[in-house]
Amino acid sequence: MKPSKLWYLAQGSVGVVQWVSVSLLLAPIIIQNTGSGGLMGMVIAIIGGFGISAPFIGKLADSYALHRPLQKIALVAHLLALVLLYFSGNGAFLYYVIGGLIGFGTVTLMLLNPTFVLSSSQNQQQEGKGLARLYQSQFVGVILAALLVAGLQSLGFTVHTQLIALMSLTGSILVILIVFPPEQVAQIESEQTKVATQASTNAPWWLFLLAVFFSMFLSANLLEMGPVLLEKLFAVQTSSSAIGMAGSALLSIILLEPAGRWIQRSGPFKVWSCALAAYMVVGVALYLMIGHKVQSFLPVLFMVLLMQACSWSDMSVPAIAARLSPLTPALTQGTLMFAIAGGFAAGTMMAGVSIDQFGFGSVITFSTISMFVSLMFAGALAIKLARR
């Protein structure tokens, strides 16, 4: 990677903290220390709930050219969350603070990093290549963090040692970003935004946001609670989930390359549609497995498929938003993050309550039903765009 592009590794913190630390450490720690599925769901909902602030963060960044400072602050928030998790016990308040820090850091990185890429892209080819590299960096973070957790667990090291390792990894990413910052976002009324404004109507934009919102019910629940669900429903050990996550992340790095080329040729809509179809397949497959004796590799295999779908969706939705939104660059991504994080928060909070009332299997049922709703909005969007 060229030195000027090393800032892409900032996206790796999303992989380290949002993907690995939350699912492999935060969720199990909460269950172990408090025994409350409701608290786990609430904390994860807080992480997603920070999407409410995403449009404000985007508007702030655009209005005062704070894109780069806010990017660094987001990484500091991720690092501080891991430090506080190290000192956590059975009190609920500290977990809420940790969830807030992770939520702020993830939302800010997820809206600003694609903004940097899209701002510097001169055409669809550069856009596809840049987004592919950005999200490949995210999965480099997933691989390194998951292998660290799995390796330390297999060697008998405590959760505290695992957290120290992840703190070191996140701190290294912060240092790299300070030394190799991205180019400043080119101005607010960018040519790309003007084109998007002229080509857009409100209906496709809102249909897109609703489809994204409801798709998050499945992706958030199955990713963030995945290792816990696999352990409770299919007796899959956490260390096996960590290894599966690392292998899946490596596969994602490979498959993001053809996905990026697909965007370069055909744009982002087909890639996103493929991701939504994969979400539905995973939800239905896991639902059909509940209550049956299955080989442990089968649910892990479908979780691997889910991670590939998530990587394709994450890469394509910023570009779709830039095409449909009448808003300024970071505000566009902030509004998209509002839909993403709002779906994350609503879905995981309801899933946490569902666990306490109906058991872990209800999360998969609830998530799969929500995916049907998402596909309805995505279908309406496709019809609307086809009639243009």
Rank of each mutant, 00 (worst) to 15 (best):
S316G: 04
T335K: 12
G343W: 04
T328E: 11
G347E: 14
M350W: 12
M349T: 09
P318I: 02
G334I: 06
A330G: 05
R323E: 14
A319H: 00
A319W: 00
T332W: 04
T328Y: 07
L331K: 13
M337L: 14
T348D: 13
T328F: 08
L324K: 07
Q333R: 03
P326E: 08
G343L: 07
M350R: 01
P318N: 09
T332Y: 04
S316A: 15
V317T: 13
S316R: 02
G347K: 11
P318R: 03
M315W: 09
Q333M: 15
Q333N: 12
M337Q: 15
T348K: 05
T328N: 12
A330H: 00
G347R: 10
F344Q: 13
A321H: 03
T332F: 03
L331N: 08
A330E: 03
M349W: 14
T328A: 13
A321K: 03
A351W: 09
A330Y: 00
T328M: 07
A346V: 15
A341N: 13
D314S: 07
F344T: 09
V317R: 05
I340Q: 08
T335D: 12
G342C: 06
L331Y: 06
P318E: 05
A346K: 06
S313I: 00
P326G: 11
L324D: 08
P326H: 12
G352D: 09
L324C: 10
G347M: 12
G352T: 10
P318F: 02
L324A: 08
I340A: 06
V317S: 02
A322F: 04
S313V: 02
L336Y: 05
A345F: 08
L327K: 04
F338N: 05
I340R: 03
P326C: 10
Q333W: 02
V317G: 02
M350Q: 11
I340M: 13
L331F: 11
D314F: 01
M350H: 06
A322M: 14
G342N: 09
D314T: 09
M349C: 05
M337G: 05
G347V: 11
G343I: 07
A341H: 13
S316I: 03
T348F: 10
I320R: 01
G342T: 07
I320T: 09
A321M: 12
A322V: 08
T328V: 11
G342Q: 09
A351F: 10
M337K: 06
D314W: 01
T348I: 12
V317K: 03
T348R: 06
G352A: 07
Q333K: 01
A319Q: 00
P329M: 05
V353Y: 14
L336I: 10
L324P: 06
G352W: 02
V353T: 15
P326A: 14
S313W: 00
